[in-house]
Design a protein around this nucleic acid. Structure first.
Lengths: 323, 323
DNA sequence: GTGAAAGCGCTAACAG
DNA sequence: CTGTTAGCGCTTTCAC
């Protein structure tokens, strides 16, 4: 059924080691034999078994990318950028989705260890401690979380959030709610901190709502609480949750932005298409994906790459309603 | 650095095979030794190397899902459903994105063979012939393409398209354009065929535009050609392209649906949120993902699972403008 | 330049 | 119940 090195060796009358060399150390083999062997291999449809190869070389040529939820449009562009970069450096990418579940994340990592040369953990939900343990077993780059002495790629949401909150203050908003995503989200915490600091500097009051699942449903679930607070603007943990808020607002007849301004985070595809178009904080996901692969493949000292973010003002924010 | 079976064996004073059995055939080992061995293993932080294990068992416990573009919101829900189902059956899922490129798809398949127990090809761009060859090397399920004597999961877009076109005819449309996606798209061809047949039955004329990339950009690129045809309605290969058409229409000041009705396919997340909300054909992606895993794991005779589709009427379609 | 042999980490008969 | 042995598919010394 499956053609192995041995089959090729037999069919071309040389030893397996010669066939092996023909593939992975072609300069060590007589050009003529090499050509003959490759011809036979091709004829037979031989494909090296990468897993077996990895067993002796300790290099698989694969990288693993582990994300919380590929259905969250924030992740795919990052994954694709990582993939492009990996391909340019002659590696393949295996992706795993953890469904926002910590046990699944653990399992995903475990199943990849040994089949990849390195792992990129995007917005991991695992504990810092556990990530450090894993880093001992396999080269690791963490995206969206800061861990001392580990290579990290960070997107400074704080920067974009500060600008966004400043803008809301200028528009006259005096009470703002932040809608929280998963408690384990490192960037989420950083964003909330940045929002609250900036708000304080502008004399704006803040409230927290949540945590909720970082999904459209989660955002919708938060809407009533937001409304009850009587705020005039709300910052959502991500665009998905902002979409949920937008939908709930429409269903409840709450005008956006006239009565409530809504700000998302991520600038996903949908943000440009919502009604009203969503104001949001754009993340440099492409750069992050590429940087993660570079860090992983460079394998040098645990460097930290920090990338900037900025708010994109669309139609879901406007002047605060007059009291 | 990395702990192996041998290390555990040495540390617990038994043979490697006993350690192996303690892990994968625990009933074949004395309870006391097993407990001791597992304790030592745990102490040492031993993790079985799945790739090595697979080399002898020929079972990896992994399934591969290969999709054309994870950034296309059509795919993630399918992947997630497949993942859930796989997990329920004690398997992991590795995902690969082929960037709509046939060479990358080939590479992705190749890199996964040997590291997975089976492959799910979603909307493959590879030739039928090549897919059949691959099916000889690795268990395979094809989604969104019909291949004789191979297990397939099909979503009958035709069904939804026929209903959608019928509805357009009822709304008075007499000239309709179909915007084509990638030439290699099997469902795309089926959809166009269904559209043209139904149109003919209703005395409606059809035109084809494209092919274009199945992306928002691709859709936008098709807009001018659509406009030039003077049609009053357009069916897009997928929602992404429909979004592009919507955007281009807005930019050109063409009112949707007053002057042009737009229909997508897939019913992705964004469709509900566009302005106007997109009429589209909903695909049973969850069911498809689950069915694909079931077929793969059952490994029985090459069955074909066909799932129905239906149009969802929103605000991007309306009565044809009066001539 | 090529073959022989050992080994990567693990499992699977086969004895005992 | 456990140790021995062989082998999964491939690479890598080490001789010749």
């Amino acid at each position: 059924m499956v053609v192995t090195l041995k089959d090729v060796a037999r069919a071309s009358g040389v030893h397996t080691s010669t066939v092996s060399r023909a593939f992975s150390a072609s300069h060590l083999v007589n050009p003529e034999t090499r050509i003959r062997v490759l011809a036979v291999a091709n004829e037979l449809g031989y494909r090296p078994n990468r897993a077996a190869r990895a067993l002796s070389t300790r290099r698989t040529g694969n990288l693993g990318v582990i994300v919380a939820d590929i259905a969250n449009p924030f992740f795919p562009p990052l994954i694709k950028a990582a993939q492009d970069q990996a391909r340019a450096r002659d590696h393949h990418v295996f992706i795993a989705d953890t469904d926002e579940r910590i046990d699944v994340e653990e399992e995903a990592v475990r199943s990849m260890v040994g089949q990849v040369d390195g792992l990129i953990l995007v917005s991991p939900r695992l504990s810092d401690r556990r990530i450090r343990e894993l880093a001992d077993e396999v080269p690791l780059v963490v995206v969206n979380r800061r861990l001392r002495r580990l290579p990290c790629v960070l997107m400074d949401v704080g920067e974009g959030i500060r600008l966004a909150v400043g803008r809301l203050a200028d528009l006259g908003h005096r009470e703002i709610a932040t809608v929280l995503g998963p408690p384990a989200s490192w960037t989420g915490r950083a964003a909330v901190r940045a929002a609250e600091e900036t708000a304080r500097e502008h004399g704006v009051r803040t409230y927290r709502v949540g945590p909720h699942q970082p999904t459209e449903e989660g955002g919708a679930a938060a809407f009533d609480a937001v409304l009850d607070l009587g705020v005039t603007a709300v910052l959502a943990h991500n665009d998905l949750m902002a979409l949920g808020l937008l939908r709930a607002a429409r269903e409840r007849g709450v005008a956006v932005p006239e009565r409530l301004s809504v700000v998302g985070t991520d600038d996903t595809l949908t943000a440009r298409h919502t009604r009203p178009a969503l104001t949001t904080v754009a993340m440099p996901v492409d750069a992050a994906g590429r940087a993660a692969v570079d860090l992983l493949l460079r394998g040098a000292d645990p460097e930290v790459v920090t990338l900037g973010t900025r708010p994109i003002e669309r139609d879901s924010t406007g002047p605060a309603p007059r009291g």
